[in-house]
Design a protein around this nucleic acid. Structure first.
Length: 828
DNA sequence: GTGTAATGCTATTGG
DNA sequence: AGCATTACAC
């Protein structure tokens, strides 16, 4: 590779690229060539004979990883770049967990639950506990569980935190901890991880298995993390663990662009990087190459309203450019029309293309008005996000069959398709199966498979239908290793009757559903055709374990033959002679988002519609930021605290800095919301930008809308801009916030909980193993059951471990239990 | 157990 | 407004 690439960098960029050893923090302002620095840094490492095997680069989206990899490949060649590990936290560590699954007692084919799965599971838990789902709202419960896992607090630790417990009690949700625990257990039992589990489990894996930690510390000698300002605590811990040995850690970020606090991102990670790595070298990239002077200055003037920043001065050599235009519309629909008209006029006047424009909004719901207007004007557009392809009902249904085929214990997939297409297994039957499964702490599938072992009231017809269903799933599973993804997927779609079911529906929606299924099958076909080597086909070098291993880094690794990424335990590698298999496909799509989808070049010329969050890292010639209204942007949910409001402001900063040449802000005086028309007032953010960079179009005459604001206004008179009037925190909110702060202030509050967490993992050991002690169970013995309490064994039949015990419980009466499954303890 | 009609709920941002 | 759950008739 030529070394000329260094000439394409400015002084500070070059320094950041060349300083390859030790901890490095790159503070990169918007449009300062951050991606370029990252890619060149990696290319430079490779040119210095660092092996690609030894580099880990964590990006924010899979798409970013892909495009960076392409760029690096073009710099150093495919052979050099192929073995780079590059991807999102979730995709990289999901991959590692699939190799190391046995350590944590998960199956290698574990399912990844998405948010819908997680919420459905919580809903069913709440229902089963006979709690009110208005008090225990699934979305709220999930958010709390997620926040806890992000802080590395699992249910045992949670229960031992008296503050949490008391908060729950006083807020009327005393059973939260139980829901939390049941949720974790049900996920585990189903062989499933949610998004947070991927990170949580990774951190546990690295903490409790020194040989694994050692292996990955040694593998990833060079670690790069993009968008570091958006990492959360568990991600921070993982990075810290992996980097501990070599400390060749390079983080890139911009505190001004931290916009994910709502999902646990902790801006302190970047602000405190120095204290974690005292000998860190810091580089600042302050020259903006993207935007005009006007845009850069406007954005700068906005962000000064935030406190607590890494000091930096973003500047640009680019043209002065045009002022930021502010446009007012009467309604959201007119806003769409005006934006569309401006796009149309620019296309005519300046020979611009649809691809040069982006319409950014705060909430997905705003896309509709924009979409309608663009469609009327016949301008090509694409809406990112919203309901993505993989979230459509028909797709999820078929994928649920795929999931069951790969992991028959997947509870949410089972519930989804056990009676779709209808096969006469109704709700009452399903309820009975769920109850039995929970009583014995086993999966629904296990119950269905061994239906005769459970005393369930079901007629023979129902039993027959269940048995047929089980047989069908088993037949799919049997085909899995020997059939390529497309053939099996097609077989499943056909033989389950899904394809026929949708084909018979001739309504427009039905037709479109059918087409979606066809599209999925098309994707499968493309995937399974044996072609180029996939990313997965890599090998590890053999690992040498020196004797002088520093214990604090990776203590005393016993030499084991732990699995090596690139192979799977069952000896096959996800490929048949006819092509790649369905399980590989599923593991690859599980973590994809709408934005990750690659676009065919011929389809690329469209106006992009997306939320500001999704626009992060992108740039467009002309950016429209729509819905600049109080309560929408800043959003009403984010006006409770200064921190929240500052995040909204950073979000606006991100939006503004996407623009290369022009930026237009629009707002509507009235807007449809909840099906009714509401008045809205212009966003305070419009006044936070230094007005000399702004231009108010006639319709947005500043005095006029100021007057308008005053007419409706609540609390945004000039005085309040710097110190907005906030609603006071409720005592509870204040409490939670104080706790959160305390937790992040102390990076390792979890050490004390280690025992508890270990206990959890021990509990999750396979039942057959932990049930060994029941081998000697005799009639007359006293036993303890998790749910039923104390009881006496009155009868035993069958041969262990398939024996069945009849137990007379003190409180619950007589129950029949299978020793294979029941968690019984012998007492006394 | 199945299908349709009516009702009721809930609404940011997203791996 | 849109969706999910529920109620009711078959």
């Amino acid at each position: 590779m030529s070394t000329n690439y260094l000439n394409e960098l400015n002084a500070s960029q070059k320094e950041a690229v060349l300083c390859t050893e030790g901890p490095v923090m790159i503070v990169a302002g918007a449009g300062s060539g951050k991606t370029r620095v990252l890619t060149y840094r990696i290319a430079h490492l490779l040119s210095k004979d660092v092996d690609a095997f030894n580099i880990l680069a964590l990006t924010f989206t899979n798409k970013a990883a892909r495009s960076m990899k392409e760029k690096i490949t073009s710099l150093v060649g495919d052979h050099e770049a192929r073995n780079l590990w590059m991807g999102t936290f979730h995709s990289v560590f999901a991959r590692i967990l699939r190799y190391e699954h046995d350590k944590l007692n998960y199956p290698d084919n574990f399912t990844i639950y998405d948010m819908d799965d997680a919420k459905n599971l919580i809903r069913s838990i709440v229902k089963q506990m006979q709690l009110d789902d208005k008090v225990y709202k699934p979305s709220t419960m999930l958010a709390r569980i997620s926040a806890m896992k992000t802080q590395l607090i699992l249910h045992e630790a949670y229960r031992h935190n008296s503050q949490y417990m008391e908060n729950d009690k006083s807020s009327g949700r005393p059973y939260f901890a139980d829901i939390f625990e049941t949720y974790c257990k049900r996920c585990f039992k189903a062989g499933a991880m949610d998004f947070d589990d991927i990170l949580y489990n990774t951190s546990i894996l690295l903490r409790d298995f020194p040989e694994v930690l050692y292996k990955y510390q040694n593998k990833f000698k060079y670690i790069l993390v993009d968008e570091y300002q958006d990492t959360n605590f568990v991600q921070y811990v993982i990075i810290k663990q992996l980097a501990a040995r070599f400390e060749n850690i390079c983080v890139v970020g911009d505190d001004a662009q931290s916009i994910y606090a709502f999902r646990g991102a902790n801006i302190q990670n970047i602000l405190n990087f120095k204290s974690d790595y005292p000998d860190v070298r810091t580089f600042k990239l302050e020259q903006n190459y993207r935007s005009t002077k006007n845009i850069v200055n406007a954005a700068n003037s906005l962000i000064t309203k935030n406190k607590n920043q890494i000091p930096k001065e973003i500047w640009t050599d680019n043209d002065e450019g045009e002022k930021i235009k502010v446009v007012r519309a009467l309604t959201d629909n007119e806003e769409g029309m005006k934006v569309t008209r401006m796009i149309f006029e620019s296309m005519m006047q300046f020979q611009m293309h649809p691809r040069d424009f982006a319409i950014l909004y705060r909430t997905n719901a705003q896309s509709r008005a924009m979409e309608e207007a663009l469609r009327k004007k016949n301008i090509a557009y694409r809406i990112y996000g919203g309901l993505s392809f993989y979230q459509r009902k028909e797709i999820k249904d078929l994928l649920a069959y795929f999931r069951l085929t790969i992991n028959c214990h997947d509870e949410e997939a089972m519930k989804r398709v056990i009676n779709y297409p209808t096969r006469g297994i109704g709700n009452t039957t399903i309820e009975k199966i769920i109850v039995a499964a929970n009583d014995h702490n086993i999966s629904l599938f296990t119950v269905m498979e061994n239906l005769g072992d459970f005393q369930l009231e079901m007629n023979s017809g129902t039993r027959e239908r269940i048995s047929n269903f089980v047989t069908m799933i088993k037949s799919f599973s049997a085909m899995l290793p020997i059939t390529n993804a497309y053939d099996l997927g097609n077989h499943i779609a056909t033989s389950t009757g899904i394809l026929k079911d949708l084909y018979n529906d001739k309504s427009p929606e039905g037709v479109s559903r059918y087409e979606n299924i066809e599209e999925l099958l098309g994707a499968l076909k493309e995937f399974s055709t044996p072609a180029a080597l996939s990313e997965g086909e890599q090998e590890f070098k053999p690992i040498d374990l020196p004797d002088d291993l520093d214990k604090t880094i990776a203590p005393a690794p016993p030499i084991t033959d732990s699995p090596i990424p690139g192979e799977t335990e069952n000896g096959r590698n996800g490929e048949t002679e006819k092509g790649k298999t369905l399980d590989v496909f599923m593991s690859e799509i599980a973590l994809l988002t709408d934005s990750d989808k690659k676009e065919e070049p011929e389809n690329r010329d469209h106006v992009s519609l997306m939320t500001i969050h999704q626009a992060k890292g992108l740039e467009f010639q002309h950016v429209f930021i729509v819905g600049m209204e109080e309560n929408l942007f800043p959003n009403s949910f984010s006006m409770n605290s200064r921190d929240d409001l500052e995040e909204e402001r950073r979000l606006f900063y991100v939006a503004l800095t996407r623009a290369q040449k022009r930026s237009t802000l629009t707002f509507a005086a009235t807007r449809f919301h909840r099906g009714s028309l509401n008045n809205s007032e212009p966003s305070r953010f419009l006044e936070e930008i230094d007005q000399k960079y702004m231009e108010f179009s006639h319709s947005a005459d500043r005095d006029e809308w100021k007057e308008q604001r005053e007419r409706w206004s609540v609390n945004t008179t000039d005085k309040t801009y710097d110190e907005p009037v906030f609603r006071k925190d409720t005592p509870l909110a204040a409490k939670y916030k104080a706790q959160a702060k305390q937790q992040t202030a102390n990076p390792k509050p979890q050490a004390a909980n280690k025992k508890l967490i270990n206990a959890t993992i021990a509990k999750y050991k396979p039942t057959t193993e932990s049930q060994q002690h029941l081998k000697d169970l005799q009639v007359g013995m006293m036993v303890l059951h998790e749910r039923f309490g104390n009881g006496k064994v009155t009868n035993l039949e069958g041969v262990f471990p398939n024996s069945k015990a009849t137990v007379e419980f003190d409180t619950e009466g007589q129950k029949q239990l299978l020793l294979k499954f029941a968690k019984l303890q012998i007492v006394g």
